[in-house]
Design a protein around this nucleic acid. Structure first.
Length: 917
DNA sequence: TATAGGCGCGCC
DNA sequence: AAAGGGCGCGCCTATA
């Protein structure tokens, strides 16, 4: 099936499982476990070797004792490359294999990427055999020139395809089907089989393949050294309509776990086949995941990991076996093959292409052959892509725990292949959702939303005649209204909005669907301290809150009786006094300090309050919107609910750092991993002691805070004990609130590579002051700085960094100035942290999934959301299952915990998600 | 009128 | 010159 699905389905990723209530009568409970990574100190040390490209000397110069770790294979590779890698140890950390892994990647890069860069140039230019000759000696991967010809050598559409109709055995009767299955499961059972289905009755943009879609044909290719009759190597099976029974003939084949099957985006095909009662087994590889592991940062439109995109990519196909390259053809898209222009009424050709329904392609006499080639070509391309990526990943060393564990293909076999199966199972299993309950919630939320909108419009109406037309969810319109005329926002601007009350424009007879309105600034200069990256005043929740203050929306009583005293508030606020506010509070039993910056901007008093309340109402709308569109609606959407009435998410591994796109890693976890990766003594200790991490950070940053803590003047944190209702001393977070706030900000920012420059902008302090604060943070965390410098150096010299498990993220080779922009440096710092968090979460999931006892007890992994796992199972054995889960999760490294310190796991069980929280 | 890309935002 | 990572969504604009 077309692989665009992987990309188009991303709508479902956003499902926020947090709101899902699994309810299944009385028998189901959720086990909710927090995976907290305790401060496991391991001997993985931050390495400090940097390799730089030198010139033509074969030399490894190295201040570290790394030779011992270099395997003969690696040495062989090093010596086969005529470049120099100079390893130095600027920072004093030694004893690490990271340099080796970096070196290996660097070496690979040298004989994989460089030649390709040249060849790419040739392709865009004249491209000839001569040019290739010249680059031959620098590369052992020089390919025949015809491999690079992007344009097919003949004009017929059919021959543009990866195979021709003559290569394809068309199976459309029982006899042929049985004979093919016999060969597949007999003679060719040890081959690698690439499979692909074509599916009708599904809208991949909207629907989950779980419970949607019908297979109309499929194709199988198991390598060039096969013959299914008359030298035909591709199999194409028609299972549409009257041929539907043929699918059943292949059931045993698809379900045979001993046959190695390769798919591109396995998830889709597997779910669709499941709709026909077939449970495919024997997953050998998913080429989409292989490609993600091979290179995590593919960009571009049309689905960077689509079969089409990958098979068109010279680098991706670089590992295809030599004798295949000559005949290699990329997959051609459906649009290119079958897209036709609509003919307009006047007979001219339109500009919009459309593709006939797949059933039509298959039955139309004119198109059928082309369709068969297209479909069969998918299996062929998948097979070749697998061959290529298998070859390439097999050449990359996988280094983990200071040892070469095998190749990155070993990594795939060990982790991502089973993880892929696990994810597909989770998707298929889905989650029972209390839809009536959600519907009720939605009703209430919408009602409150409407009230808040009205509240806001009422206020807008005093300043703008289009109050009813304004789209309150449009940041552009809100920005125009609040800041028009200031901060570089023009005074007035027109917007196209739905014509809700049938306004008829001048000169028109009937109302149009849309009309334009002119939104002007309210004319008061509101203070603004937050700006968007584009330099415009921000209208984010935080920005709005600054304006509104902490006031509640106060829907019903808009304090109409409140006497309006002009100037009153100005006096109060400019005296900026706690006393001033206090006085007023006494007068009105109201805390005026709750009002935000809009209060005085509107002259205080009634106007000021109204402005604050209106803006607060806007905040309310925004909050409700995130709730509704974030999860209340997606969880009820018919498109993801299968016939089993369960919600089926789409879980993708398709992110740069390797985390699931449906999941949201918890920052604390990431901070812990940073502590671990950098082997930062101070942070590890802070986590070990527990308590308020940010307060502790503040204490370590500021001497006066530390002294106050030491003297017992303030408490780092306080847990009420029996008989105590007041802390024996004030808390740090109250006394040194601003210090703690800064510490907290830094804790969250540093892991992402935020610079002093960025902080100075945020805090509106000088660069120098910001830098000083950052330095304070690093004061007792110098290991973090060293580690970050290491990562940056690796990114610069090796063009990649690694996660805990040894997955690489590659960076493009860019010029020095581009590198200096910092984007890559920041990613280099962040990826090991985010990516390692993803690694650990994956390991924990695999551990649970593989646990036989849990399976026998009837417990299934439902979802994983940030650092939590959610399982579902029978309540009678829940306490026991909980213990099993804790045990499994605290030993996520193949049933062991290779870390020096325990992984702390908290687990709870409850009837549903809400109860667990 | 449909679609793609840019931007701003919320979330972790 | 800019300097916070990645992701998904909704709005807006340009384009055909």
């Amino acid at each position: 099936m077309d692989d665009r699905i992987g990309r188009l389905r991303h709508k479902h990723h956003n499902i926020k499982p947090r709101s899902a209530a699994a309810q299944d009568g009385s028998n189901i409970k959720l086990l909710d476990c927090d995976l907290g990574i305790e401060n496991h100190v391991t001997n993985i040390k931050s390495h400090s070797a940097a390799a730089q490209d030198g010139s033509n000397i074969k030399l490894i110069e190295c201040g570290l004792d790394i030779e011992n770790h270099i395997t003969p294979e690696i040495l062989d590779e090093i010596q086969n490359v005529g470049n120099v890698y100079r390893l130095s140890a600027p920072m004093g950390h030694v004893d690490s294999h990271a340099p080796v892994s970096s070196l290996v990647n660097c070496l690979e890069a040298s004989h994989m990427e460089e030649p390709d860069i040249k060849m790419n140039k040739e392709m865009s230019g004249q491209g000839g055999a001569k040019d290739h000759e010249s680059s031959k000696d620098s590369s052992k991967n020089v390919m025949p020139t015809d491999y690079f010809s992007k344009e097919p050598t003949c004009n017929s559409n059919v021959q543009k395809l990866a195979c021709t109709i003559g290569d394809v055995l068309i199976v459309d009767d029982l006899f042929a089907a049985r004979s093919v299955v016999d060969k597949l499961q007999g003679e060719y059972r040890h081959h690698v089989h690439a499979c692909d289905t074509e599916v009708a009755d599904i809208d991949v943009k909207k629907e989950s393949p779980v419970g949607h879609g019908r297979v109309i044909c499929f194709s199988i290719y198991c390598g060039p050294n096969t013959d299914f009759g008359n030298g035909k190597t591709c199999i194409w099976v028609d299972v549409m309509d009257s041929n539907a029974e043929l699918l059943g003939v292949f059931k045993s084949y698809f379900e045979d776990p001993s046959i190695k099957k390769v798919w591109h985006n396995y998830s889709f095909d597997r779910h669709v086949l499941a709709n026909h009662g077939i449970t495919p087994a024997g997953l050998y590889a998913d080429t989409m995941q292989l490609a993600r592991l091979w290179h995590s940062g593919r960009k571009g439109t049309g689905g960077s990991y689509s079969l089409e995109s990958l098979t068109s990519d010279i680098e991706a196909m670089n590992g295809v076996h030599k004798w295949d390259r000559k005949t290699l053809m990329k997959k051609t898209s459906m649009m290119d093959l079958f897209g036709t222009y609509k003919i307009k009424k006047d007979g001219t050709q339109g500009s919009i292409k459309f593709i006939p329904p797949v059933e039509e392609l298959q039955t139309s006499e004119a198109l059928r052959d082309k369709w068969i080639c297209y479909s069969a070509g998918d299996a062929l391309c998948t097979w070749r892509l697998w061959e290529s990526l298998h070859g390439q990943l097999s050449k990359r060393h996988w280094i983990f725990q200071d040892k070469v564990q095998g190749s990155m293909y070993t990594f795939y076999d060990k982790y991502w292949r089973p993880f892929g199966e696990l994810l597909v199972e989770m998707e298929g299993h889905g989650m029972l959702v209390d839809r009536p309950y959600l519907a009720e919630i939605e009703k209430v939320a919408c009602k409150e939303r409407e009230i808040s909108i009205q509240r806001f419009r009422r206020w807008v109406g005093e300043h703008c005649c289009y109050a009813n037309y304004i789209n309150v969810t449009s940041d552009a319109q809100i920005r125009q209204l609040l800041f028009g005329g200031f901060y570089g926002v023009e005074m007035c601007r027109s917007f196209k909005v739905p014509n809700i009350d049938g306004y008829i424009e001048e000169g028109k007879k009937a109302p149009l669907k849309y009309r334009s309105i002119n939104i002007c600034g309210i004319g008061k200069k509101l203070p603004c301290d937050l700006f968007t990256s584009g330099g415009l005043p921000a209208v984010s929740m935080q920005a709005l809150r600054n304006l509104a203050g902490k006031v509640s929306v106060d829907y019903l009583t808009a304090d109409d009786e409140e006497p309006f005293i002009p100037g009153e508030a100005d006096a109060i606020l400019t005296s900026a006094g706690a006393q001033g506010s206090q006085k007023l509070d006494d007068l009105h039993q109201e805390d005026l300090s709750a009002y935000g910056q809009a209060y005085s901007a509107f002259g205080g008093g009634h106007e000021g309050k109204e402005a604050c309340r209106a803006i607060a109402a806007l905040c309310e709308v925004s909050a409700i919107d995130t709730l509704i569109s974030g999860f209340i609606q997606p969880l009820q959407g018919g498109d993801i609910i299968g016939p089993d009435n369960r919600v089926h998410c789409s879980l993708n591994l398709n992110t740069e750092t390797g985390r699931l796109s449906a999941r949201r890693p918890n920052l604390q976890l990431e901070l812990r991993l940073l502590a671990h990766l950098a082997n930062c003594k101070s942070m590890l200790e802070a986590f070990k002691i527990g308590g308020d991490f940010h307060s502790r950070t503040a204490m370590n940053m500021y001497d006066n805070v530390k002294k106050a803590v030491d003297r017992g003047d303030v408490l780092l944190e306080w847990e009420p004990k029996e008989g105590e209702d007041v802390p024996p001393a004030p808390l740090l977070k109250d006394v040194f609130a601003s210090e703690r706030r800064k510490a907290k900000m830094l804790n969250f920012s540093i892991a992402y590579g935020k610079t002093a420059r960025g902080l100075s902008k945020d805090w509106k302090v000088s660069l120098k002051d910001a830098q000083a604060t950052v330095d304070l943070w690093y004061k007792d965390r110098h290991e973090v700085r060293d580690w970050q410098e290491m990562q940056k150096m690796n990114a610069r010299s090796m063009h990649c960094v690694h996660t805990l498990l040894g997955r690489a993220r590659h960076f493009p080779r860019v010029s020095g100035s581009e590198f200096m922009s910092g984007r890559i440096e920041r990613a280099a710092i962040n990826t090991p942290v985010q990516g390692s968090a993803a690694d650990v979460a994956m390991l924990a999931m695999l551990e649970l999934w593989r646990n036989k006892e849990l399976k026998e007890l009837g417990w299934k992994l439902l979802l994983q959301v940030h650092d939590e796992m959610i399982l579902e199972g029978p309540s009678d054995n829940a306490p026991y299952a909980k213990d099993l889960v804790v045990k499994a999760m605290s030993h996520p490294f193949d049933g062991k915990n290779i870390l020096r310190v325990d992984l702390a796991v908290e687990a709870k069980y409850a009837k549903n998600w809400y109860a667990a929280k």
